[in-house]
Simulated scan of single mutants.
Amino acid sequence: MGAFKCVITVEGPIPPRFMLGDDIGGGVIITEMKKVDEELVSTSQLALKYNLSVQTVRRKLAQFNQGSNGKGLYSIKIADEILNPKTKQKTGGAKRKN
């Protein structure tokens, strides 16, 4: 009997807690794990991931576009730094006095 291979994509801030040899969902064993790093992602993928409109993503990442005008392609690392609300930097300046 041949082996059935299944690819599971896990997206998150920390790596999953699987070990080689673990059984998952009735499968025989985990035989291989590797990190797949996407080089470039499209505007629509980023809009879905960060719950923003396509126009907003294009406007915020206009300087980092690596595709053509019709097809915006961006590095996932740069896009995450700019669009992720948890990594936004403070605007700076003195606090407002009431």
Score class of each variant (00 low, 15 high):
N51H: 08
L73I: 05
G70C: 04
E39T: 09
L48N: 06
T56K: 06
Q66A: 12
Y50H: 01
Q63R: 08
K71Y: 12
V54S: 03
Q45M: 10
N65G: 03
M33R: 07
L46N: 00
F64L: 06
L48I: 04
D23G: 02
K34C: 15
K71G: 09
E39H: 04
T43D: 05
R58N: 13
T56N: 07
R59G: 11
V54C: 05
Q55K: 13
Q66E: 15
L61S: 01
V41M: 03
A62S: 12
L73P: 02
T43H: 00
K34F: 15
Q45C: 12
S75I: 08
R59K: 13
G25F: 12
M33F: 11
V57Y: 00
I29P: 02
L46E: 00
T56F: 08
N69I: 09
S68I: 09
A47F: 03
Q66H: 06
V41R: 00
S53Q: 12
G72P: 01
R59C: 14
G27P: 02
S44A: 13
Q63F: 10
G67N: 11
F64Y: 09
L48F: 02
Y50W: 02
L48S: 10
E32W: 06
Q66Y: 10
S44K: 02
K35Q: 13
I29D: 11
G70W: 02
K35D: 13
V41T: 11
M33E: 11
V28A: 07
D37T: 10
S42E: 03
I29K: 09
K60N: 04
D37H: 07
G27A: 15
T31I: 15
R58P: 06
V36W: 08
Q66T: 04
I30T: 08
D23Q: 06
Q45P: 01
V41A: 05
Q63I: 07
D23I: 07
L73S: 05
Y50P: 00
R59F: 12
M33G: 13
L48H: 02
K34N: 15
S44C: 10
A62E: 13
I76N: 01
K34Q: 15
V41I: 10
G26I: 14
E39C: 06
L40R: 02
G67E: 13
L46Q: 00
K71N: 14
S44F: 03
I24Q: 07
R59D: 15
G25H: 07
Q63V: 09
G27N: 08
